[in-house]
Amino acid sequence: MTFFKLGAISFGGGYAMIPLIEGEVVENKKWVDKEKIVDIFAVAESLPGAIAINTSAFVGYSIAGIPGTVAALLGNLTPSVFIILVLSIMFAQVSSNTVVKSAFRGIYPAIVGLICYAGYKIGRTSVKDIFSLCIMVLAFVAATFLNIEPIPIIISGAILGVILAVFKTTKRVKNEKRKVKEK
């Protein structure tokens, strides 16, 4: 029953939700301890899917198993689903109005700015060196100018990650062998 509380705190969405969840689940309810919640956030961000959904599913799962997952998801997402529904219905009625159209002419560039900001925010943690910068530029160029779909780009990125990991381990093993020989 208490999972509905999670729904009430979902306002703000995505990254904004993280400190709210932490306060509620760790400090008020003491469902999970502080170290575990940091791990949950890290894992939720690494898994595919929206971060907010992953986090709430994770928290629900670690508290009460699969029923907990379902309860947390429903509790968390029901309010936003209702709000967006109301907005969509309202929008469908006014979308051909010229005032609304010109308002959206102004909103499009703001969305571009907003998404750039989301990219910048993620980039601050993901782009740490020249290698990751090159990967980022490469992904951008491949998608924008070569018209390659994002999903194949993501998959080839994962394959590259595997290759690099294998390469690193074999290199390390070789170095260790050499050291053993030198001794």
């Binding site: 943690t125 782009v127 990967i135 980022m136 992904a139 998608a143 990125g157 990650g161 381990t169």
Partner: peptide
Amino acid sequence: PMVRSILNVLRPIITGIIFYAAT
């Protein structure tokens, strides 16, 4: 290390794709 390595490549790719969305 394998998972780390994959995520290390995926994160900058995601960043590039987000900028692609804006463009």
